[in-house]
Write a protein that binds this DNA or RNA. Sequence first.
DNA 1: CTGTTAGCGCATTCAT
DNA 2: ATGAATGCGCTAACAG
Lengths: 340, 340
Amino acid sequence: MARKPVSLRDVAAVAGVSASTASRVLNGQGRVSDATRQRIVEAAERLDFQPNALARSLVSGRSHTIGVLAVNAPGAFVMPVLTGATTRLGEHDLSALIYDSHLDRDLLAATVRKLRARRIDGLLVLGDGSRSGMRSVSEGFAVPVVYAYGVSDDAQDASFLHDGRLAGQIAGEHLLSLGRRRIAHITAWDYDLSARARAEGLSSALDAAGVELVLGHPLHGDWSRQWGVRAAQELLASGAPFDAVFCGNDEIALGVYSVLRDAGLRVPGDVALVGMDNMSGMLGHADTLLTTIDPRLNALGAAAADYLVAAIDGGPYEGGLHSVPCTLVLGESTALDPAA
Amino acid sequence: MARKPVSLRDVAAVAGVSASTASRVLNGQGRVSDATRQRIVEAAERLDFQPNALARSLVSGRSHTIGVLAVNAPGAFVMPVLTGATTRLGEHDLSALIYDSHLDRDLLAATVRKLRARRIDGLLVLGDGSRSGMRSVSEGFAVPVVYAYGVSDDAQDASFLHDGRLAGQIAGEHLLSLGRRRIAHITAWDYDLSARARAEGLSSALDAAGVELVLGHPLHGDWSRQWGVRAAQELLASGAPFDAVFCGNDEIALGVYSVLRDAGLRVPGDVALVGMDNMSGMLGHADTLLTTIDPRLNALGAAAADYLVAAIDGGPYEGGLHSVPCTLVLGESTALDPAA
DNA sequence: CTGTTAGCGCATTCAT
DNA sequence: ATGAATGCGCTAACAG
């Protein structure tokens, strides 16, 4: 229980050697006779010796702690990134010192000092998913800094983001593979870089197949279900024929879905539907009503963490955007067997 | 940039005093003349001195690191707890060393050793929300251990959980306050302690009002939307009149909702609906179709973290269950203005 | 009031 | 092959 931790000297004493010899053995360094090695190892095991990480850190200069600066940690989409990153850090035996909402001018300076006082081995900066540039804080640190779920405004910095363009492309290719040719796109405003990336990806897929978007352009609004409802109504009212809709996110898709159903259209029989975010997956549900694109935010966080750790260990550090691939999650809304 | 960190001796040298005097001043300890104090403070500021937390830890024995043992960190409902806990730890300048899925026999022993090697100041154990007992690991540590989103099987341990009973009670009282008297309950199997707590809470509210549950008992199934669909159909088929349904979670509620709508019933006009989990809130949406109970999992994690930190600082430590209150989130499904 | 000494636990010279 | 000495940066006990 409350037995005080055993130190290296204790082990050395039991083994009848000096502390330095014990240290050597336990770290696999210099040459030591097998006999004494044996004694030391046994003693260490018998005493359940745990080298004090604090003392070790003091001499090595490595704290085994990573700083995490988040814009809004409890955000629905940030949490998976944060969780993915911090649990991956744990797998590397690194702890995470998390400061949320400390990126504004007032707090930042003080936070940077705290982080430096802790001698963090690296820093992870988490954005809020908007691709607009985050102010780089890398200058303030002598250790590697990696940005995730947001992009640093300094091209020298490595930024990790889910590949929105790929998402659009996958969605487009999936719908095309189903034989759909009249594909509409309902999404958020074009100045939202996240929306734009998806739209571009969709376009590239359609272009490659020589197919043109229904109405010739996406329908732009916000990210809400309500917008999905209105947009779907507009689409129906336009009279333009369509057999598929790629929606900017699952919320919009659900709005569209309800309108289509109310209009007596079958999904996917008459209209196939693809969303984005894998909302129900995020909630841990197996019911895949909607075919969707999973941005794999957990993997995004983990990838950023891995990259940071590698960089700390002398690995490569490339500035610019690092994209993490998305995956298609099949649901009933594009099921081959059109029961609905 | 890469300038090496300034040490206490540097400050002392500049101020023309000894290191220990500088230490005293910077820590507000013993009495020092105002003159030298001034010089030291100025020197420290000018050099932007950051006391090395590692060295400080070595002597104080406090690592400022909290261990976190999670059963399944990426779980949809665990993430908010984890995020809430770790960001709160950050507010206390404590880092989190997270080990996920290390509670099984194989890994646990090794993980405990790692945690001890790190000299963690406290441990947080995160369950998966099932109230069934988690094996206590407190014996393995000389520091405070707090359990959250799960209950330790040792009554000596402090466990934090959202108050499911209160949730049921709030739901019941809300429906009663709306004038509903024929209230049904559709939820998961009774051996799920989480489902049972909600059912008990509902019962207590109804009992207090002298109202009896429709059918005299809850409808038990799983947590899925499909079960909500089937249960609602059963309920309708039973012919028993009802004007409200409290559902074990939002998924079930959505299933019930769709059946009611298809049956031509208005929500909340004919039937008011209350769910649980605040799913749409977790996803960051403002659209509150469903009235629901928010388990405040973020707050749960934060509360557990706070309690642990306080205990570390010599605060009280009470074994047993600590409940974190839930809150009602109003949505259209019980709106006073029955538009739908 | 302030400087000197010692020690936290370990790793790493340097001797032997 | 092993032990003694030194230092990582800071705090605390002891002198003066």
